[in-house]
């Protein structure tokens, strides 16, 4: 007889079904998104396919079904509420289908904004965290930057960049920006803002990981003749970046969602486009539920990819958190 613990454990077929469903969902989502982008910006230009922004599916059948269900709900007696609810779900699907092309373009902006900002932010965060920990008298400078950025609201930072500084004027004359997939100046300012903001947070995550690498290893690197900088580059950093992956994934997830603040400086990303449509059509629930699903899909994809990266680069023999100290004694004092 199966014990109670066995009963609660997922069986192999169940896990497989879960995986299959997840893979199917991922294929459907990314398949749709990539097809949209290619259709709108490549195929439509050369006259193939339905054309830029034209629906793949018709919203009409969903809308009429929803209307019919709503109209006949009363006839179902005690089930009227359920039928009514099903009707509104079908209606929401209709709305989603209707706004899907716009969401695809918005998702493009959201993803590019996030990816570019987090990568640029990382490039700043690595030296920043090194200065913060090993920078001697410059530590206070790094600390000041980090605390200033982390201590002020992101939205305020974006506003200062957008309204307070003359970036918009500098970028105005450039011809190619703002065309098709190429973003306009508000977008570039948003990238600058998110880069600065996430660099401060990433620097703190990396600092934490940096401090978990035994200082003795840097001493050992110097004892074979590597300079301090080479020791950091070849010994400390490769380990630090591995240990930082879980926290860094958190930052990536935050940034995906916080990128919606770019809407306030008119960047036409997901949230901006959705809120514009919502204020016109008043279909708030359906529209925000739709973008919630898009955000969720992007976030889950990012999480899965990062945990795969983490597994890929894991140091053999070392668990995720244990085993960072090798000897039985404390690390050496510097």
């Amino acid at each position: 007889m199966a014990s109670s613990t066995d009963a609660r454990r997922l069986t192999l077929p169940e896990i497989r079904i879960g995986r299959v469903l997840a893979v199917l969902a991922a294929v459907a989502f990314w398949g749709w998104l990539l097809t949209r982008w290619i259709n709108d910006w490549v195929l439509a230009r050369i006259g193939i396919g339905p054309g830029a922004g034209v629906h793949f599916l018709e919203a009409e059948p969903f809308e009429t079904t929803a209307e019919r269900l709503a109209a006949s709900a009363d006839a179902y007696g005690p089930f009227a509420g359920v039928v009514d609810w099903v009707g509104s779900v079908v209606g929401a699907v209709g709305v989603a289908v209707d706004i899907a092309p716009v969401l695809a373009v918005g998702a493009w902006y959201t993803i590019v904004l996030t990816v570019v900002s987090i990568v640029l932010g990382l490039l700043i965060a690595v030296p920043l965290s090194l200065v913060r920990v090993y920078g001697g008298p410059f530590r206070w400078l790094a600390l000041g930057y980090i605390e200033l950025i982390r201590g002020t609201p992101l939205l305020a930072q974006l506003f200062v960049l957008y309204f307070g500084l003359p970036f918009a004027v500098w970028l105005h004359g450039v011809e190619t920006i703002g065309q098709g997939p190429i973003p306009d100046q508000a977008f570039i300012i948003a990238v600058v803002g998110f880069t600065i903001n996430s660099s401060a947070y990433q620097a703190e995550y990396i600092r934490g990981a940096l401090e978990s690498v035994d200082r003795g290893q840097l001493t050992a690197a110097r004892s074979v003749g590597l300079s301090q900088l080479e020791g950091l580059r070849f010994v400390v950093m490769p380990q630090t970046l591995r240990y930082a992956i879980p926290a860094w994934t958190n930052e990536l997830v935050y940034l995906i969602k916080y990128s919606s603040l770019a809407a306030f400086i008119t960047v036409p990303e997901l949230y901006y486009r959705a809120s514009r449509i919502a204020s016109r059509t008043f279909e708030h629930t359906a529209i925000y539920a739709s973008i919630a699903i898009v955000y969720l899909a992007i976030v889950l994809t990012a999480t899965v990819l990062m945990s795969r990266v983490e597994r890929e680069v894991a140091i053999p023999g070392l668990g995720q958190a244990e085993g960072r100290h090798q000897g039985k004694t404390e690390g050496e004092r510097e």
């Binding site: 690498v213 035994d214 003795g216 290893q217 001493t219 050992a220 690197a221 110097r222 004892s223 074979v224 003749g225 590597l226 300079s227 010994v235 490769p238 380990q239 591995r242 140091i315 070392l318 085993g323 960072r324 100290h325 090798q326 000897g327 039985k328 004694t329 404390e330 690390g331 050496e332």
Partner: peptide, 20 residues
């Protein structure tokens, strides 16, 4: 200094191998 350190090998109590 870096040249000096090449000429002097050091072995540590807490070993300090490069973990990665």
């Amino acid at each position: 200094v870096n040249e000096l350190r090449q000429q002097v090998g050091m072995v540590f109590q807490d070993i300090n191998l490069f973990a990665h």
